[in-house]
Design a protein around this nucleic acid. Structure first.
Lengths: 206, 206
DNA sequence: CGACCATTTGATCCCCATCAACTAAAGTGG
DNA sequence: CCACTTTAGTTGATGGGGATCAAATGGTCG
């Protein structure tokens, strides 16, 4: 019943504002779900990797797609129509549960980021973002952990609510300290432990 | 199969960090779901009103409760154990759908707030927050719309990622302009239209 | 090689957090 | 019913984190 959807890097699975025509499950690859504000600012609201759903919000609420999932690498996803997917869920209660579990994690993730955005300064938010990237798609290489898809300072800025300038400064400082390294659209975390310390360290003189 | 839970104002339905023992559906009243950071800062991640779920994230992921829902007024909720609720869902597919729909809205809401937190300045975020409050529990009175539960500047600050000082200044300014009015723990929006203008106005000289 | 994109780095500015002091309303207890 | 405390809110002064502007460098690709 499913349609297989193959998406090249930098292409969109669907577009923000379009009417919902399908719900997707990512099989391989990685997407960044970006929202555009009325003013034209962009934000990355979440990353969508293998096993994650996309388009579910619109599908179940019957609203236009709230974001545009851009493929960061060549990716493959399965697509169902609303009808097919709900009938599938009706026949397999385990599927409903899986959907719910996935959405629950998305909620928790979003709330965590909300909390970070409200209480933490940029450097720490970037540290959290990198740790999340590691967890979602880190790849061990000798001397560190590599982010397995091309990522720019600008992307990181959009994920943390900062500007690419500030992110660049932070990463430059970290590179000097040997915490990260990487070139153009490429990032390796050399000292995850140091990042965790930055991310969690108690604020001084509370 | 459900247990009826009655909660007085300023009491918690459950506490962040506790193991999940039930899932709740709010019948009446209003809760603010607050998260505490390791450093002790607090944030209101969402409002939970009639028809909304609480505790679902933990219940389905089997993780400790991620937040503490504090009752803003006396409230009533129904509680089910995990076992009872899943068996209920298995027997009534419509329930699964309702749960999914509610969670989808929570996700969209969280993403919207994320986007706002990342791109908008405080005044506009406060405007959005007030508009959301109106929508969720506004109550028409002559001369404006009243927020139907006690709310403090501090609460608004926790909802917008600002400080109570900044919120106080903004509301004072708005009060001078006749947009809002209200006293201690009490808020009336006199000119929702003006708020919408503040919330959506194009940034100057883009 | 030339055009474009990612990144870096410096200089400046301003929004808003922070600190501090004060007012006023609401409990509270004798 | 009145001192006393507590909690909510206001307002001024100050400083800093980070946005913004500007310009240069180095990688990639057609």
């Amino acid at each position: 019943m499913a349609r297989v959807e193959r998406v090249l890097a930098d292409e969109a699975l669907f577009r923000q504002g379009d009417p919902p025509e399908a719900i997707f499950v990512v099989l391989s690859g990685e997407f960044k779900a970006t929202q555009v504000t009325p003013e034209g600012d962009r934000v990355v609201v979440r990353l969508v990797g293998p096993g994650d759903l996309a388009g579910h919000v619109s599908m179940f609420c019957n609203t236009p797609y709230p974001a545009t999932p851009l493929a960061m690498t060549e990716s493959i996803a399965l697509a169902w129509t609303h009808r097919d997917f709900t009938s599938l869920m009706a026949r397999h209660p385990a599927l409903s549960l899986a959907v719910i579990r996935n959405m629950a994690q998305a909620i928790e993730n979003a709330h965590t980021r909300l909390r970070e955005a409200a209480t933490e300064r940029v450097e720490r938010r970037v540290a959290h973002a990198l740790l999340r990237l590691i967890k979602q798609s880190g790849h061990r290489i000798d001397g560190g952990i590599e982010i397995s898809f091309p990522i720019t300072r600008h992307d990181i800025a959009l994920m943390t609510g900062a500007t690419l300038y500030t992110v660049s400064r932070i990463l430059s400082a970290w590179e000097e300290q040997g915490i990260v390294s990487g070139g153009r659209r490429h990032l390796v975390i050399r000292a995850p432990h140091a990042l965790m310390k930055i991310a969690e360290e108690e604020a001084p003189t509370k």
